[in-house]
């Protein structure tokens, strides 16, 4: 498990920034009046695109798959939730942004918990690494 503060903080920041920025883009691009399902789907598409773009921004600093997967998840989650919120409740720009950041936090924790579930070594006993 990654314990170096630079990378842990990097993972957290990249997910939250992606969630927040996606929410902002969704707020300004997805119509707030209309079908909730369509708004969710449109938000998810925007989130996927944002996730992909921001992956390339954060990867050089914080890692490859370790950045790509939570950032993509944050983008999709934020896009869907904010799209839905806009259609159903007409969320404000600031509220959408805050919810987006929270979606990023959820993506970060989700990835962390999934990682904890499968971390470690599988293999036969007595296999010692000399290094």
């Amino acid at each position: 498990m990654e314990k170096r503060p630079y990378f842990v903080l990097g993972d957290l920041v990249s997910s939250c920034v992606t969630g927040g920025l996606t929410a902002w883009v969704v707020y300004h691009s997805v119509p707030s009046k209309g079908s909730m399902i369509l708004a969710m789907a449109a938000g998810m598409v925007v989130g996927m695109v944002m996730g992909m773009l921001l992956t390339f921004v954060f990867m050089p600093f914080f890692g490859a798959m370790e950045v790509m997967l939570p950032v993509m998840l944050a983008g999709k989650l934020s896009g869907m939730v904010v799209g839905m919120g806009l259609a159903m409740h007409g969320w404000s720009e600031w509220w959408s942004g805050l919810i987006g950041v929270l979606c990023g936090l959820v993506a970060f924790v989700w990835t962390l918990l999934a990682h904890y579930r499968v971390q470690g070594v599988t293999g036969h006993d007595g296999y010692q690494n000399p290094g």
Partner: peptide, 17 residues
Amino acid sequence: AILRVENHFLDVVRSIH
């Protein structure tokens, strides 16, 4: 024969012996 698998990130980044 797979002797050992170490997961470094999820079950995605791994060392396989």
